[in-house]
Design a protein around this nucleic acid. Sequence first.
DNA 1: CATGAATGAGGTTTCATTCAT
DNA 2: AATGAATGAAACCTCATTCAT
Lengths: 224, 224, 224, 224
Amino acid sequence: MQSKLNYNSVMNYSSKGDSNARQHRGAKRRARTRAELLAAARRVFAKKGFHDTSILDITEAADVGVGTFYLHFRDKDEIFNTLIDEVLQILEEQVISEVRSSEAATLPVIVRSIFRHAYAERDLFSIALTSGAQVSRTIRVEDTIAQGLTRAFERVTETGQLQGYDVFLLARLVTGVIAQGIIWWFEQDDPGPDEMAESVLHLLAHGLPAALFNEHLLPPDTAP
Amino acid sequence: MQSKLNYNSVMNYSSKGDSNARQHRGAKRRARTRAELLAAARRVFAKKGFHDTSILDITEAADVGVGTFYLHFRDKDEIFNTLIDEVLQILEEQVISEVRSSEAATLPVIVRSIFRHAYAERDLFSIALTSGAQVSRTIRVEDTIAQGLTRAFERVTETGQLQGYDVFLLARLVTGVIAQGIIWWFEQDDPGPDEMAESVLHLLAHGLPAALFNEHLLPPDTAP
Amino acid sequence: MQSKLNYNSVMNYSSKGDSNARQHRGAKRRARTRAELLAAARRVFAKKGFHDTSILDITEAADVGVGTFYLHFRDKDEIFNTLIDEVLQILEEQVISEVRSSEAATLPVIVRSIFRHAYAERDLFSIALTSGAQVSRTIRVEDTIAQGLTRAFERVTETGQLQGYDVFLLARLVTGVIAQGIIWWFEQDDPGPDEMAESVLHLLAHGLPAALFNEHLLPPDTAP
Amino acid sequence: MQSKLNYNSVMNYSSKGDSNARQHRGAKRRARTRAELLAAARRVFAKKGFHDTSILDITEAADVGVGTFYLHFRDKDEIFNTLIDEVLQILEEQVISEVRSSEAATLPVIVRSIFRHAYAERDLFSIALTSGAQVSRTIRVEDTIAQGLTRAFERVTETGQLQGYDVFLLARLVTGVIAQGIIWWFEQDDPGPDEMAESVLHLLAHGLPAALFNEHLLPPDTAP
DNA sequence: CATGAATGAGGTTTCATTCAT
DNA sequence: AATGAATGAAACCTCATTCAT
């Protein structure tokens, strides 16, 4: 809120004052500092996790004074959320644009696009997927993906298909597969995004091999 | 691991000393206090989340002195892990026993069993699924489920089926669907465990409706 | 509030538990620490004034850890108010007792008693009289004295005398004289309390010398 | 003292440089900014009290940049003192002029004049009377009034009257009554200045009603 | 074994002040 | 002269942890 006011004021500078040049310089510096803070926060969060990161860690990584942090963000939550929001907005834009420029706006296109972007930003996504709840009791990344999928699914609902499905639940379950794919990269780097997308899409398209529904999955007799 | 040391030490008390009776009484009291702490921790974690819970919160809820906490647990992480381990061990035992007593040890039986237990303990599972990472950088619940599934899947692998699947990744993806189902209960209480299991199993068995792979999922032209 | 709960709980200890002795020791230590904090606060306030005193100053003077402060008082305001309340309560009790044990409960007896006590505690009273407003927007010492005087005056009102006086305003004005007498000791130590009382009482009894109402108080012609 | 340096430097600007006209414009602007800061400070002090007012509060209220503040005043104390000095100087001038233009320069004339001016500026006076000590360990308003009264009283001393009085102490005690009258307006607006002056003057002229010196002021027997 | 008063490291946050523009 | 972004000292406060009883 505080920071948004500040942020917006930056945006408005060029159109308001008469002495354009002078105000611009201050605003530019301000924006640069803010960007440095965001970049530093991302690095530190990725390295130490959300919980173990202090404001001081961030300002030191950004090479600015402690107080500067509070000029731009209310607290650790806010910078974290800003970071996530930023990355989610880019994700959304990118997915939409990729989907538009593709032949057909089908699920495979969407999923591939999500994985590609998530892979590129996998450090942040991992943090976001595993520390989300402690920040806002809303799990932002999952929510955003689930909402996107829901909107997409609803397009099909309108055509009369998807009868008998709870679209919301379905979207969340699919989100679960995707999220787990991303979290996979928390520890390994491969398979890369395209292969990952194929695995996920294969599962989503055909389900699990029938064997898993027929065969015995436990040894006849085991001690724990 | 740490917590197991503590836990086992309780178990060993009665067999060590010479004056058996008195030690027994002490051990019983000790165990009772410990149990109160665990129960209190579960209540408080469910209400305030892991991060916002302090040791004092727990001891007050358990109606014991602060110092007492440290006689039983090293820190907040340990009591949390103990709680999770306990509940996961019960989950495992219950699933195994249910699967054993069923006609065929197939995936549906396993999944239903997992959901039933998770539903019964949904407050703890929700916390565990969303606060896992900040405790140990290992996401215990997902890991346990994924491991269990992996073991199960490997039985099938041995029969030569599941060719071309990365069993580990597959297990994790399936874990993702299950986990998201549980997290769903973070906000709603229904559908209940059996219905939830059906939805998940249907998805896992047949995949998503083909429409989602054919139809256009985006309106032809949207503003952001 | 916090501290009052704590404080009261100390008071109740001896009558509540069964294991009397053990609880007593803790409570005694607690009370001692609290008293040390109060004594230290008084010393530091007297030396540096309210505004320039930090919590750390107080805890260092009391030779306890910082955290200990917060076990007993919410913040600087609270310890200050506690200090003032304590001293004002003693003042009130002492004045009442002195007045009772005197021949006649007249104003001179009251005023002498106030000055005697205030002189004994003049460092604290000076601080209280000059820093009062910044703590609570109620000027505690003046208020207490004025209230006491008001109650006293009202006794006389009931006898039909004091016609035409606004008792509240009168009490405050008299409080002003007394307060200024005490503030006088902020910089000088004499005259002592009895002489001071005589000066004030003489003024209150006879008013100012008539000359001040007749004579010219300005030189016929002065530059600023 | 410090503030006077600053203040005078403003006055000297126009006479120093070569290009008279331009400097004049600069000086005028400078003076205007300074006046805005003073006016803003007064408003903010009146609203939030001295202690809770920050430099930023003042500059925002004055609608100037933070840095600008330091071009005119060293710190919060200085602007506060400047404000008080200004108002006290006006008080002094006004009292002197009113007294001069009156028939006889007696105490009633002085007191009435003081109250009239103090009432007009009562927000500032209230702040000054209750926050004085934290600024300079000299209680400026009381000091100024007491000094004025002392000077006036000394005129009478010279005529041989006021024998046996400590003139300084007497002046301070009278100051106490006047100050308390002004502080009264901190919470109420009436009685207005003239009525207030009459009450105070009546007290100063005749002292308190004799009853207060004869009657019992306490009920014969009270519980605390 | 249990207690809870005390501790102080470590975090957060504010705000007077500087200085490049 | 005016600006306001940046600074960091200095305060605040919490809470995990210890330890005497």
